[in-house]
Simulated scan of single mutants.
Amino acid sequence: MSGEKTPVEVDGRQLTLSNLGKNLYPEFTKGEVIDYYARIAPVMLPHLKDRAATRIRWPEGVDGGKFFEKNAPSHTPGWIRTATVPSPGSTRGRDTVEYIVIDDLPTLVWCANLAALELHVPQWKVGPRGKIHNPDLLVFDLDPGDPATVVEACEVALLLRDLLAEDGLESYPKTSGKKGLHLYVPIKEPKEAERTSEYAKSVAERLAADHPRLIVAKMERRLRKGRIFVDWSQNNPAKTTVAPYSLRAASRPSVSTPVTWDELEACQDAADLVFSPGEVLARVDKHGDLLKPLLEDHRPLP
C-alpha cells in the first residue's frame, strides 16, 4: 500500500494522490479526509482565502507524530499561491516565512494529501501583491479548565455576545472541534494591528471581573480549574486559530463547526456540540455557511 499513487484532475490541475486507503484516524482513511475537504470546500475556502495557512500534518495518522508546517515545502507546485511574511525572531534564524495561501480547491486537496489534517489561519489577510493587512476579524477562544466543559463555555459565550452587542458588535460562534468554543467578530481593519488585541483583552477582563467564579482572563494555568479561560491572545498577529470546518486530530475525526446561538443556549452536555465530518456536511446542506457574516458584515471597533 505504501507506494499506491492515484493521478487525479482537480479544477484543471493535475495532482497525484497517495495511500488513499491508509487510516489517518483509527476508522477514517486518508481518502475520506480528502473527500471531506473536497466536499466542504465551497463553504470553507472563503474563510481560508487570502490568509497565510499553518498546516499541522500527521503523516502516520493521529496515533503517529505531528509537525507544524508554516513554510511551503520545497516540492510545492508552482501554481500554488504563497505569501512571504516577515517573521522577526524566528527560531530557525530566518526573517521571513513563505506561507501557502489556500485560495482554491486544488490547493486544499494538495494539503489534505500531505495529511494536513488541521488548517490554522490568522485574523489578517495578505493582499494580491503580498501586503499584510491589519486584522479584519476579532476572535475569543473559550477554553474550559477541568472539570468545566463546553456547557460552561456556552454560558460564557452568551455573556460575551451580550457584552459585544453593547459595543455595537455582532459575534458568531463555532466549536473548536476539541473541548471549547471560538467566538468571531467581523471588524473593519483598525489603523493599528495591536488595537484588536487591546480591545479583546479589555473585554475579557471586564467579563472576568463581573463573573470571577466562572471566567478567568489571565494566562496562568493554575487559575483555570473549573472556569472558562477567555483567551484573547489569538488576536496577536503572530498567532493563528483553527479554521472554520477544519478537521481536528483526535481518536475520531471531529470538526471545528459553526453553530447557532440557539444550539449554545440549549447545550446540556458536551456531546451536544461534537460533530463528525458527515454531520457537518449535512449541516451545511441544511443551514448553508453559518459564518458567512464574517465575510461581509465588518464593523468598526468602539
Rank of each mutant, 00 (worst) to 15 (best):
A266Y: 11
Y25H: 05
Y25E: 00
S176L: 02
V109L: 08
L160Q: 02
V259G: 01
K70T: 04
L164V: 05
P46G: 08
G145R: 03
E166H: 12
S256G: 08
G89Q: 06
E98H: 11
E198L: 13
P173R: 05
G226M: 06
R57D: 09
K49A: 13
I187Q: 04
R248N: 11
P277W: 00
N23M: 15
H211C: 13
L207Y: 07
E152C: 02
A148H: 02
T96F: 11
N134I: 02
K225W: 14
K178T: 12
T16V: 15
P147I: 01
A153M: 01
F229D: 06
L301F: 03
E198V: 15
K178S: 14
N113F: 04
V101I: 13
R55H: 09
T29S: 12
G3R: 15
I34T: 02
L163H: 09
R161S: 08
K125P: 03
V150N: 00
K125G: 00
I132G: 00
L108G: 03
A266R: 15
E166N: 11
V280H: 02
W79K: 09
I102S: 02
R222E: 15
N23I: 10
F67Q: 02
L17V: 08
Y36A: 06
P59M: 03
K131Q: 15
L114C: 12
A249V: 05
E166S: 12
S176K: 00
D162G: 10
L24M: 08
